[in-house]
Each structure stands twice: as C-alpha cells, then as structure tokens.
Design a protein around this nucleic acid. Sequence first.
RNA 1: GGGGACGUGGCGGAACCGGUAGACGCAGCGGACUUAAAAUCCGUUGGGCUUCACAGCCCGUGUGGGUUCGAUUCCCACCGUCCCCACCA
Length: 857
Amino acid sequence: MARYNPKDIEPKWRAAWADADVFRVSNDDPRPKYYMLEMFPYPSGNIHMGHVRNYAMGDVVARFRRAQGHAVLHPMGWDAFGMPAENAAMERGVNPKAWTYENIAAMREQLKMLGLSIDWSREFATCDPAYYGKQQAWFLKLMERGLVYRKEATVNWDPVDMTVLANEQVIDGRGWRSDALVEKKKLTQWFLRITDYADDLIEGLATLDRWPDKVRTMQENWIGRSTGLQMTFDFAGGAPADFEAGLEVYTTRPDTLFGASFLGIAPDHPLAEQLSAASPEVAAFIAECRRGGTSEAEIEGAEKLGLDTGLRVAHPFVVGETLPVWIANFILMDYGTGAIFGCPAHDQRDLDFARKYGLPVKAVVLPPDAHSATFMVGSEAYTGPGRIFNSGFLDGLTIEQAKAEAVTRIEAIGKGKGATVYRLRDWGVSRQRYWGCPIPVIHCKACGVVPAPVSQLPIELPDDVTFDKPGNPLLRHPTWRFVPCPACGQAAERETDTLDTFVDSSWYFARFTNPDAVDPIDKAAADRWLPVDQYIGGIEHAVLHLLYARFVTRALKDEGLVSVAEPFAGLFTQGMLTHETYARQSGEWVDPSRVVLETAGNTRRARLADTGEALVIGDIEKMSKSKKNVVAPEEIFEQYGVDAARLFVLSDSPPERDVQWTTGGVEGAGRFVQRVWAEFDSQAEAVAAPVDEDRSDELRRATHKIIKAVTESVDQFKFNSGIARLYEFLNLLKAFPATDGGVVAVRAEALSALARLISPYTPHLAEECWLRMGGEGMVVDAPWPEFDPALTTDSELLLPVQVNGKRRGEIRVPADASELDVREKALADETVSVHLAGLTVRKVIVVPGRIVNIVVG
RNA sequence: GGGGACGUGGCGGAACCGGUAGACGCAGCGGACUUAAAAUCCGUUGGGCUUCACAGCCCGUGUGGGUUCGAUUCCCACCGUCCCCACCA
C-alpha cells in the first residue's frame, strides 16, 4: 500500500484537466445553464487563505452542478484598476500597468494551483483597453440617456489618496482604503443618477429570495426611503433676498405641525450662508459647527448648538403665530431640504435643543393612557402612539390619520405636498487618479462637454507617466490631454478624471458571457447566461459593489443591452478566515510559523520555536499582515496538499461564518485524504473471502443515505455538515472491509459513489481514486450519483421510549411496524415497565419512525 | 438612538417540520506497533452520583418564566456578544 502523495498527484490531474480543456464551456451548449461566479480578485500579487475559501466554495457548487448535467459558466478575471498600482509607482518607481500585469501573472499561477473548474478562456482584466473601451461605450450611451451629469458639489475628499470618494466609501468619516479623515471640498464632478432607480432598487429586493435577508435589509436602509411632507413657511415681516417664496422644510411628522416651536436650518444651508456674509456672528457660528467630527463617539457626545437668526416665519394654520428661525448644528444639508420644523415634544433632538435654548415645548400627541389636562413632556420626547390634541382640525385623529389630513390641508392651501425622500445620493464616479478608466469626454471652450466619438474608443491611458509629484499624472502629461474638439475641430482638452473602480466591477459578470464581443455586451450571450445563478463574496460589499451592480444592470437593461434587471439571482456571503494571534512580551506580533504550541491537559502555551521564549496567546482575529496571523497558502499546499487545504476551510465552520485556521484542523483534513485513498487502495488489492453473513443491505442503505445527505448539503450551502457525513461514511466503510466476500459488489458501488461525492471538495484525490477503482474516463466527467429514496431508510428502527417525556429505554421494531405493534412493544419493554409500576397509563403517543412517549399519572 | 444576527462540552461545531442533545473534527486520556520517537491503528472523553459488575439515576443547550405528552428548537422578559446604520427631520 502506497501513501498518497499530493505533491505528485495533484499537478498531474490539473494538467490532465487542462489538456482535455474540460472546463471550457460553449455559449451553444444545449444543457441547462448554470452561472457560478465568485467576486473577482484585486491582483495584489498574492492569494491568501480568504481567496482559497471563497474560490473553493464556488468550485464545489460549480463542480456539483456540472456533474448534475448543467452547462456551467465559471469564469475568472481581475479587478485591476485602483490605488495600489499607483502607490507602488510612487514608492518604487514602477509602471502601474507593468506592475499590475506582473501581479496578474503571478496570481493566475497561484489560483490555478487550487484546481478550480474555471473556464480560463474567458479571462480578462478591467485594465485591458479591450474591456474598459467597452465600458466607455456604454458610459456614453448612459450619458445620452441623461443618466450621467456633471455638477459642482461638496464632495468627500481623501487627502491621502488625493481623490474624491462616494458616500458609500466613507466609513466613520474616513476613507475606506486610506483610513484618512475625509475633508469636504467643492469640485465639479461626474455623477450617475442612481437615485432615479431608488424605488426600483428597493422594489427589486423583494424578488431576491436567494439573497441573505441581512444584505437586503442593509440595502433598503442605505437607500433609506421615507415619506412625508415638503412644505413652505412664509416669512413674517421681511423675507431675506432669494427667499421671498419662503423657507422649505421636510418632515415625516406632519401630524405634529401644531406642536412646532421653531424652524431649524443646516449651517451650510444657502440662507445661513447668505446671513453669514452680513454677520460676523453667524459666520463664526457656522465655522464652529464645521469643526465637529463624524465618529460614533463624537456624534454621541456632541452638544446641540444653535443660533437665533432673528428671522421669523408664520404658522400656516394659526393666525398670528410666528416661529423663530434658528441655525442648528444637528441639521444636515444633504437630507431633505436642509431645514426642519422643530416639534420638541415628540422628537428627542428637538427637545434637547428646545430645553437648552428655552424654546416652548407643546405636546400634541396624547398617549392612550394619558389625560390631556395632566400630560407633560419632561426630558424625554414622546414618540409612541396616541391621539392628536391641542391641534385645531387635527384633534382626535390618530397619528396616521393626522399625517394624511395635514398633507391634504397643506396641499389645499398650496403650501406644499406629500413627498418621498431618499437617503441615497447620486453616485459620484469621478476620481482624480491615473490608474482607472478614462471618462471619454472632451472639454471644448466653444462647444462645452463633447462626448468622444465612438470610433475613437477605447480612449487609452498613456503609458509614459510620472509619479514624482502628487496629484493626477494625466493632468501634467505633455500631450495626452490635448486633442481637437470632435464637434468643431478647435483645440480642446480631454477629461482627466477617471472612473471609480466600482464602475469597472458593476458589469464584468455580463462581459464574461462573451468577452470578445464587439458590443459592450453580446445580448444573445447575456440572455443565455444571466442572471448569475450563484454569486459568492464578502459581506463588505453589501452596499457598495452589490448596489452599484444592481443599478448599472437596470440602466443597461433600459438601454437594451441586457434583459435582466437583477444581475445576481442567488447571493452567498462567506465568512472570513481568522487565526489565533501570538505576541512577545514586548507586544511585537509573531508569525505563526515561528510558534510552537504546547498542550498540558486543557491549557495551552506558545513558545518561539528558535529561542523558546514564552509568548502571549492573543485573540482570534481576521488574518491580517499587521497582526502577522497569516498563513501562506503555498506553504500549506506544499505541506498538506491543495485538497486538504480546500477541505479544511470548508469543513470546520458553516460557510457564512468565520472559520479559524488551525494546524490541527488542516492535519485532520490531510488524514482524511490519506484514509480515503487507503480505502480505494485496499479494495483493489484485497482478496475477498467467503463469509457466512450477507451484510450487503446495510452498506447499500448507508451508501444511498450518504448520497442523499451530501447532495442536500451542497444544495443548501451546508458544506461543513456534508463533509462531516463523508467522514462518518468513511468510518462506516471500515466495518465492511474489502476482504469480506459478502459485500464486495456493494462496496464497489459505495466507492464509486464516494469518489464522485468527494470530487467537488477534493477533486485531485477523487480523480486518483476513480482511476484506482477503474472508473470510466475522469471523475470530472462522471455524472453525480443518484439515490433510491427507498434505500435511504433503515429496515429496522431503534425507537426511544419516553415516560412522561423522559427517555427510559428503547425498542427495536421493523420500519413498517403498525402503531399498535409499536405501542404494545413499548409498554411491554422491561426497562420501561419499571417506570410504569403502580401508575395508570393515560396516553401513549407514537410518532412513527421517531419516538414513543407514555404519559402516566 | 434605530435595525439585524447570535449564545450548545476544553475548542470549532451537529441536531430534518417541536421528538434519543453533543454527530463529525480538533485537543485530551489510555492502549497497540516501535529499541525509541514520529506516523499509523484501536479504545475512551459533558458534569455529578449509585454499583464488584451488568446497568441505572440526577443535572445539563446564557438567565427566569410560559405553551406542550415532549422545547437547543415556539412565545414573553432579562443578561451578554457581534455586525450594520446613524443628530436622516
């Protein structure tokens, strides 16, 4: 018996698959389609264990569907534009393009080691002009449709990356990549009208029944639709210039209109800015407001600040009543109209503000159990249900009725209307960077913004750029910018902003269906494959990539490029890879490869391998270079084999949860690989001896049960459970050795099923086993095993018997025994009857095939 | 502040639709093989108690209640952990 040596065997099978080109799929393949896609990687140059888990999961599904008779599209590409290439250029003087393509070459080799069932013929990188040129083409089409516009806007400026960020890319006031504090800056920027699709994007979520609820909720919250009233307050006394028409506010609580005691405007509201020009006091206040931070702690502890402008507005329904207009720091210019009416009794922020500045607090919602004469609001606003009071024509109505009535009355007097407001902003896609897709427009002094003619696409990036100065190298390139205007022929300049890399990843799944198409998307190919049947990636893209891709797909659908509105029918968000951390007493992190672990009973100690220095075992955290708690995939492959690594990252935790990398765990997976091989090897060598007892039925039933279990586990994304069942089955197989002449034929059936069942997880091992048992062709081309439902149950059952809900014994009965027989047998059982002595049997509950419960009293 | 997820042995986790809690793996313990170690194989492993033994009993899925013949699973309250969003009117 030879030991299984993955180092020799795994490369052999990868070469065999490549030679036979088994994973190439044709768009004309008549079998039912299945599009399996994992989020494509950024070509950093090295794969990490997180990639291994992500792509192993996708490969299990792809190989499974393939075996089940689907034409599986399983492509791979590179999300290749972005900052790291420019950083490398600035730090090491390398060319971003050369750097990126070198990384791609290195990573492709590493990914190929994983033995993934990928159709590499469809590979592309988003930095290929052949890709981004097509992106420029559809960008121009969206421009014609009015979905692209340019405006001066206050933007999030990342001072480290020297570029603009979209709202989605600002986390706690910091850039998502650089972690630098984001500044506000006014710039003319390109935007995509994602807000045109706000309603669609919310409605569409309801159709995504194979998405995690969590992601759908996150997107819904991010879009943040709210319905309310947009209304105008007229100024009492003189109106400021430009505000003769009054001051517009937005509210979701029109029912509390009679409880209003002030109007508030944001510090960057146009009215506030106008007033600051004339008043140093106002200017100073606004400047103070801008200093506030945006982190959790800062917002939590931030004090409400306000300044009375001295202006007053009239209450629309109470003749003679006027309200003061304040500038307040807690009002946001980018939500609603940047102005509110404050109703302190029923909004906590308004209440805090009113208490601080001595503004009136008038309750207008009466809680169900309160009396109008005595109900008071103290330091806590009342936001619960109730009836309206103190409110003229709204008195006695419920909150919902009063909202509707207030909107109707305001509309009747022409002072406003019901309005829907979104938290979602238009998507700012301009980036002041070199390594991105050039925005294909030309600025002409005479003609304005002119789209580049389609015949000139792709607008390619120049290779000869310098990174010796900060800022965008395209701006200082000697020639690239200067082109004649396509419209009038006069000297003009190219746009030097490039597109956010999230644009690149918002349609790549469609390009994979025909990466060589002349059009951006080959409609027939896209119709053949889209939507993606199963998409797998990290939860961190819940509102970034996954929202942008849904929007772009809708826009492209309206343009007629694709037929589907939703790009991803099924989504699975996988957990991260974690590892224990180790540190020296000095606090310096230590690489796990330098650590020796010792166990004494249930306590564990860590030492430095070379010096024996005692180490501190730290928390289990996401693998990261900064904590040094990473393991290099290539070293693992070298030591345990690719199959063992794939198996372990899928076996130890449910796929949606984080998995902790442990040496013991991957060793266990390696042992399984060896034991599976030994089972096939021994079958081939063993000489079967005649036996007295035929035990084949038990093994046959076990085989059909395992087929059912593994099939269901892959279907339901419960890889860990399926693998556990395979371990169990292998243990059971040992009880039916190949030397047992009675089971030889059934054993062959069992091994044939086993080889195919493990093939999605450990594809190399499966091939070698298939070869050893004399299977036809390669296991990768073998059909998925089928089970006979009649054989997935046992012929005889061991039923537990409870007395008053406590387990007191068990009985052995035929699977088809009648309820009466089961009942009799349970009552007659010796160990059970002890607990029945002297008591009356009141009821016997027989759950067929499950349990018997005898109720006594 | 709003929304969501979760809580099971020393550890990762399993348990279909409410039906034998702890599958499977890791770690541990005992043994076989070996001159020895590694590797491998076999056995054992939630806690407590009774028993020479066979076996049996009690407790046990964060805490406290409830529904039920029966609850890790359903309901209510509380405690704790994690994630997302957030002065969003």
